[in-house]
Nucleic acid binder design. Structure first.
Lengths: 349, 349
DNA sequence: TATGGTCAGTGCATCGTTACACCGATTTCA
DNA sequence: TGAAATCGGTGTAACGATGCACTGACCATA
């Protein structure tokens, strides 16, 4: 069961390995139709599949897309990773998965390792304000697509960003609560040092101000030192927030915008611990619209990210840009987030 | 910024590339301590990292573990994939992720592609009764670790299986409900053609019979043609089951064992649609203990799979067995599942 | 009939690492 | 003391695919 190499194909087709190589690499203009078909049938009959390692060694590239997410343990990232894999498969690539745990140092290490292993396209799900930690590799030619992190002024030119418009998302979520008559609306998040989180927060602030209210008057949760919290623990943030915000009923909010669905669900759980009922006593809205938002009791209102479309965009940017050695400047795509209203938000009694 | 190769290291250390290679491949017995340290410092100073492609081309192997899961979009598999990645990282390997969508043909294709790309160890999360579709590759030397699928009589000898004892799990879950006074207990699942599912079902039956009851008397849900349902749709199965089982109140169950947490949550959602309250009106128990089980309202009783430990076991079997070319027969590890009692199960009123 | 230009395809060096055969210098031991 | 074994290490030929420089054969033009 020895491996079928390009030589075997060449022999079977009665040509030289070089010609087969030309065939494989779309330099087919340089050969007569008959040769082309002879090679084609030889490949089919022998079941030849090019050896990746050899290819990569020769030209220093892979057909692999690197995917760095905070943690696939989190349902949102799991779902996104899944979509990425599907999209990559459609384009004939495989996906190398890395969990950064939101640790910049791990992000850097993964990106560099991937680069040195010949991966030329990486989808990096980060929300760090700066890309300094990977800029060296970008200079060397890495195609970087960031996800969930809109472009920032000092980003390297070639970077492509795919993200929802978090500011608008924050506004839509908050406006929804305002329309329901709520005037004491809290924003619950771990650290908002990340760009997407602060954008959501700004959207929240904008909507509050636009309604003639003052952010300063809103119940405020300063939070735990959120750097302690990875993604899986996002729920704990929500739970802790509920406990703190409702410690004094006089200052408690009637509605809450949570930074994501996991935090929202944790918050709901915290309310339950306090004997409060989501929807009836307190309105809660999350972000992401993970699959569990709809399953929850009560079903969670959420700002949906169109992850299927985003994954497709990210992969095609990563793969297609990677194929031509273009150095045209990157782009920044901000998709519109969609409000999905369910039962966790209700008119103020 | 040219690549640092083994030659550069050799030159810097004043030895031949072969010696550096020997050093790297733990044939250090064949060299004097001084040489060893010279190589070590040279590597550190130059920041040398061996080129994977070249290594792989040379000896036909990778340091990569293949992971084939049904879908990382499902929180359980996402969490498992995460644990696998962590465990692999600790052993210096990377993980190539594939989603089979529970399609045997995709499973086969992925396994073969991985094999041909030099991956020699694969963790396959399948629950197909037979491994015929990948047996060819196993014969050629693939180290296969199956997860969530205990060993079957006709499995190739070298296969290692890691799984919980689903039969016992099914019994424990059912016994818990029986102890709470329930006598009308339904089992809800999509297709139980898979080995783990049927084991859970047998455990359920065993417990029923052991209590002096008859499975035939239990409310039964024949289900949709469950092959239509991927993992993400597991919740839909639960939802549909709730609707059907409670169509006639006279024959409705008072408690339900769901095949996994997603289905259990879907079932809870279905109950809610019907105006029934989980815990109070109907007891529901799931499998897996995904992170959302604890967040749900009410928190879901579940049979926990110790995924961290299982992932570690799977990776170490895959990697360590892969390193020595042993052909010793595989093993089958059945871990004990742990019942986590929460509020979705309650004493029969 | 020279000259030059296409066209279709080939030969060869090369990517970075590794296994194996080999080599000179000591050491061992009968 | 001489033959063999051991030690510490080196030289070289691969692994499979690629792309550049090249070669004949053929055609067109002057």
């Amino acid at each position: 069961m020895a491996r079928v190499t390009i030589q075997h194909v060449a022999q079977a087709a009665g040509v030289s390995p070089s010609t087969v190589s030309n065939f494989l690499n779309d330099r087919q203009g340089r050969m007569v139709a008959a040769t082309r078909t002879r090679i084609e049938t030889a490949i089919a009959e022998l079941g030849y599949r090019p050896n990746r390692a050899a290819r990569q060694l020769r030209n220093g590239k892979t057909q692999t897309v690197g995917l760095v997410v905070p943690s696939v343990g989190n349902p949102f990232w799991g779902a996104f990773a899944h979509e990425v894999e599907v999209a990559a498969l459609a384009l004939g690539c495989s996906v190398l998965l890395c969990n950064s745990e939101r640790d910049p140092e791990r992000e850097r290490r993964y990106v560099e390792e991937l680069w040195e292993d010949g991966v030329r396209s990486i989808i990096l799900c980060t929300s760090l304000p700066s890309l300094d930690h990977v800029s060296q590799v970008i200079k060397e030619g890495l195609r970087l697509v960031t996800f969930d992190r809109p472009a920032q002024p000092h980003d390297p030119e070639s970077v492509v960003s795919i993200s929802i418009d978090n500011n608008v998302g924050g506004q839509v979520a908050t406006a929804h609560l305002l329309e329901l008559g709520h005037t004491r609306i809290a924003f619950v998040s771990g650290s908002i040092r990340s760009v997407n989180r602060s954008a959501r927060y700004r959207g929240y602030c904008d909507a509050i101000e636009a309604a003639g209210l003052s952010v300063a008057d809103m119940p405020h949760w300063t939070g735990l030192d959120a750097d302690l919290f990875g993604d899986v623990e996002a729920a704990e943030v929500g739970r802790a927030a509920a406990k703190d915000l409702f410690a004094d009923p006089a200052t408690a909010p009637t509605a809450v915008v949570a930074i994501n669905d996991m935090t929202a669900l944790g918050f709901c759980r915290g309310l339950r611990d306090l004997g409060l009922k989501v929807g009836r006593d307190v309105s809660v809205i999350g972000f992401d619209d993970i699959i569990l938002a709809d399953l929850y009791d009560p079903p969670l209102t959420s700002v949906r990210q169109p992850i299927t479309r985003m994954a497709q965009l990210a992969v095609s940017e990563a793969v297609e840009r990677g194929s031509n050695e273009s150095t045209d400047p990157g782009s920044s795509v901000l998709l519109r987030a969609e409000l999905v209203v369910r039962e966790s938000t209700a008119r103020l009694a």
